[in-house]
Amino acid sequence: MAEDAASQLAEKPANVDATVNIPVVVDSNDDGTVDQELKLEQMRSTLEEAIVETRSTPLKNRPRLPHVALSKRNRTVVRTLNPIQVTYLEASRDLCETSSILFGAALAVCRIIGAKFYTVERATGKSSTIPAWRIRIEKHIAKARALIGRLIWFR
């Protein structure tokens, strides 16, 4: 019986508080169950990849981050990444690098929780086609120039 109890304890994950620096990632249905898919090392590598990507991306090409809902799972992810992020922030040399680290951390949180975010072009609605209002204005300008040309010729 002792062996059965020991094997059952080994199989059950421990629900440890995030203040002990052991990640507790709550399932998406917020019922308090521990999700074993995301581990500390995976979160650390996601954070590191996001920071490296952010440092190499110009400001205007960075994706827009969505608003994240305040749920138990999202709070736990943020609380888990905060102590990891501190090591990068302590090593930063200037404000630009600090900004890149913070944006990278926010990007990592969005990736971990699975939030959808869009690039700047999609978020602002820019496209390769010329908008209809611009075409109409250019036609009015062309007609006005033609009229001015005729008036000058008659004068």
Rank of each mutant, 00 (worst) to 15 (best):
I135Q: 10
C96P: 00
V26Y: 11
Y88P: 00
G32R: 01
R73G: 01
L102E: 09
E97N: 01
L70Y: 03
N29R: 06
P131A: 15
P63K: 07
S99F: 11
T33N: 15
R150I: 11
L59M: 06
P63H: 09
G104W: 03
S128V: 12
L47Y: 01
G125A: 12
S45W: 00
R73Y: 02
Q8M: 15
R62P: 03
D35K: 08
V77S: 03
I51C: 04
T119D: 15
R134E: 14
G125P: 06
R134M: 15
A69P: 00
I113N: 01
A123Y: 09
R155H: 05
R145P: 00
T129R: 12
R150W: 03
E3C: 10
A115Q: 05
E41H: 12
V68A: 05
V25R: 04
G125K: 07
G114E: 05
D35S: 15
C96M: 04
T129D: 12
W133M: 03
K139E: 10
L147V: 05
E121A: 14
V16N: 02
I141S: 09
A14G: 01
T80Q: 01
W153N: 14
P83G: 08
V25T: 07
L38T: 09
V34Q: 04
R145W: 03
G149P: 00
P63T: 07
P23V: 15
I137K: 14
A14E: 10
I148Y: 00
G104Q: 05
Y118F: 14
E37F: 14
M1G: 14
P23L: 11
R75I: 05
Q36N: 06
T98F: 01
R134D: 09
Q36Y: 02
P23R: 06
A108N: 04
V120T: 08
P66R: 10
L9D: 08
N82G: 01
K12R: 14
K116N: 11
A142H: 10
G149D: 10
K60G: 04
H140P: 00
